[in-house]
Design a binder for these strands. Structure first.
Lengths: 155, 155
DNA sequence: CATTAATACTTCGAATTCTAATAATTAGAA
DNA sequence: TTCTAATTATTAGAATTCGAAGTATTAATG
């Protein structure tokens, strides 16, 4: 009772990296969510607005691919952003299956105002790491993420 | 208009590390969620069962602290696990505010069966990194996570 | 051309997750 | 001891998130 998991060295090592990764992400998300929430937005909504600001209007499918979210999720989040008057949907004329999403002036003003603060907050959170360590972390995460999404389930 | 964000170097660096971190975590979570889901569990439920297996029975408050989740979230997840007959609640006698959560035999059997596969899966996902790189990643995430939860909002 | 298959989105049901408000219990202070 | 604080858990309401099923549209096949 109350004993930690003792496994093989390679399991302990991977599980430790895994749990640290998850906890760091959780902490950062919670912190950013708190401040985005002060502006009346969720992180998911913020992510959509930011993608539209920096990449321009795009279909819901592309949004899902960019943000690694399911199609039904994008539908829901865009629904809520539309209710808030921050984005608008346009059915594409040359392919009426596709729905393009674009910022409204109100949405553009809001995200353009919020993003700089958000970016500075991320700089501050990551300032616990040196520049070299930030690059190293990005590199390790890129390798890891790429491998996971490529090899997927089988192996 | 389809232009990526161009900011100051320190912003670009931190934002890049941030997005890589988030994407890696998302990919890994999705992959693990898929397989845990085959056993009829969510990642949140799995996390509670695993904590109870490796650390023994504990209060809902302690579960929330271990898993970095809110109290109301733990209430909900434990509700669902209780419906599935995998955990049981006991009101603590010497402090009747506290609810202790423990695995039922059924819950213990299930998580004890699932965990080894889960652990091997994590080892496989992280095998894209060398042992040294896994330790490095854990170290960077520990530093980052600790800094975030300590310094919190102000800075 | 007609049928079938693939694509893009929506809807539905369920679980997660949060904050805020509430209830129950315990601890501390007057 | 009695009133007030603080602690622990639950409930309510909203948003996120998923997978599966359904709809509309387009592409491909016969």
């Amino acid at each position: 009772m109350g004993t930690r998991y003792h496994g093989k060295p390679d399991e302990v090592r991977a599980l430790n990296a895994f749990i640290k990764l998850m906890r760091a992400t959780d902490s950062i998300s919670a912190e950013l969510s708190r401040h985005v929430g002060e502006a009346g937005l969720t992180l998911g909504q913020f992510g959509v607005l930011e993608a539209l600001l920096h990449l321009g209007p795009m279909s819901q499918g592309d949004l899902g691919a960019k943000l690694l979210r399911s199609g039904s999720n994008i539908t829901t989040v865009v629904d809520n952003l539309e209710k808030l008057g921050l984005v608008e949907r346009t059915r594409r004329q040359d392919d009426r299956r596709v729905v393009d999403v674009a910022l409204t002036p109100k949405g553009r003003t809001l995200i353009a105002r919020l993003f700089p603060t958000h970016a500075r907050r991320i700089v501050r959170l990551f300032s616990a790491l040196t520049a070299a360590n930030q690059r190293q972390l990005a590199d390790l995460c890129r390798t890891l993420g790429r491998s996971v999404s490529e090899t997927g389930g089988d192996g």
